[in-house]
């Protein structure tokens, strides 16, 4: 079906306004758009790991969720969702449940890349008919911006503070989408808040309506942690894609597909510059740090092109060298 922006945006909100997430937060925008992937007639049970999203969307006596919601502690979203989904299957088979329900779990990068990885991995391996969505803002924002294994190289966080002895986080980020793809689940995709949300919408629909386990990794910037002006969020996301820092891709039944290849790959500097967490990289004498960050992006982009059967200059060079 062709993507109609107006139509999709006019769907009934399943995460209602009035929640207390920050202005300029990528998390809520991501969640609203993922939930637009649900057909109006279908219901859902949402599982939430401990996160900003969880603490800010249901505050007694209010809830922003128009579907049933269960919050469990940090590491348990995928396992809890597995239990709900399995029981649903049993009851559905016995004819005790009317209607179609879908099962979607949301976790931040801390609850997904780190403490929740074991529970996520097992849920994916068991191939529950569920979608796990990681809204990746690349640090523990809920507790005050501590690094996670999703935090990119050189980012300044409260536990990798940039200063005299440190240039921010010394390690690069874990490639979670690739890890989940290695589980050989039916559907894995990486997306972000890009342009008219067509990419995210299509991926949400596929993830929700593909039978079996699906995983979405959604880059969801955080104005507090990344330190950008709240109305710059869409531009930050665009730069992440155009610099190939955050490529858009899918892995369908093990086949890697690149969804977007910029005509001109922008230097990563463009993505780093508007963000306060990378401010120290632009001090005089730190030019080599930006070069490292660029090398990191290039390496990963090349590997992705290779996986997706594309051909890049980098790969040609590498092959020529051999």
């Amino acid at each position: 079906m062709a993507y109609n922006f107006k139509e999709v945006m006019n769907k009934k909100e399943r995460l209602a306004p009035g929640h207390r997430m920050c202005a300029g937060c990528g998390g809520t925008i991501a969640v609203r758009n993922i939930l637009r992937g649900l057909r109006d007639e279908d219901k859902a049970v949402i599982t939430g790991a401990t996160s900003c999203l969880e603490v800010s969307t249901f505050m007694y006596p209010y809830t922003a969720w128009n579907d049933s919601f269960i919050h469990n502690a940090f590491e348990n979203a995928a396992a809890t969702c597995s239990g709900v989904q399995t029981a649903y299957e049993v009851l559905k088979k016995k004819g005790k449940i009317d209607g179609t329900y879908k099962f979607i779990a949301f976790g931040g990068d801390g609850g997904t890349y780190d403490i929740g990885l074991q529970s996520l991995s097992a849920a994916m391996e068991r191939n529950h008919d569920m979608v796990y969505v990681c809204y990746d803002n690349a640090a523990y924002m809920n507790t005050g911006i501590q690094r996670s294994s999703a935090t990119p190289l050189y980012a300044d966080t409260t536990t990798t503070p940039a200063g005299k002895l440190s240039n921010g986080k010394p390690q690069s980020r874990k490639d979670l989408a690739a890890i989940i793809a290695a589980h050989d689940v039916p559907y894995v995709a990486q997306t972000t808040l890009y342009k008219n949300f067509k990419d995210m919408h299509k991926k949400a629909e596929k993830a929700i309506y593909t039978p079996g386990a699906a995983f979405l990794n959604v880059m969801a910037p955080c104005p507090r942690g990344w330190r950008y002006e709240t109305d710059d969020i869409m531009e930050i996301c665009r730069l992440a894609v155009e610099t190939c820092y955050w490529p858009l891709f899918e892995v369908i039944d093990g086949k890697w597909i690149l969804n977007y290849k910029p005509k001109t790959k922008l230097p990563v500097e463009e993505f780093l510059k508007p963000q306060g967490r990378f401010k120290h990289l632009f001090k005089k004498g730190n030019e080599q740090l930006i070069e490292h960050a660029q090398a990191e992006v290039d390496k990963r982009w090349d590997a992705l092109l290779d996986k997706c059967g594309e051909y890049s200059q980098g790969m040609i060079k590498k092959k020529e060298a051999i």
Partner: peptide, 15 residues
């Protein structure tokens, strides 16, 4: 590992 209300201990020791 960050957790309220102990996180300051981590943050300060990181520094």
């Amino acid at each position: 590992y960050p957790i309220t209300p102990s996180t300051e201990i981590s943050e300060l020791l990181a520094e």
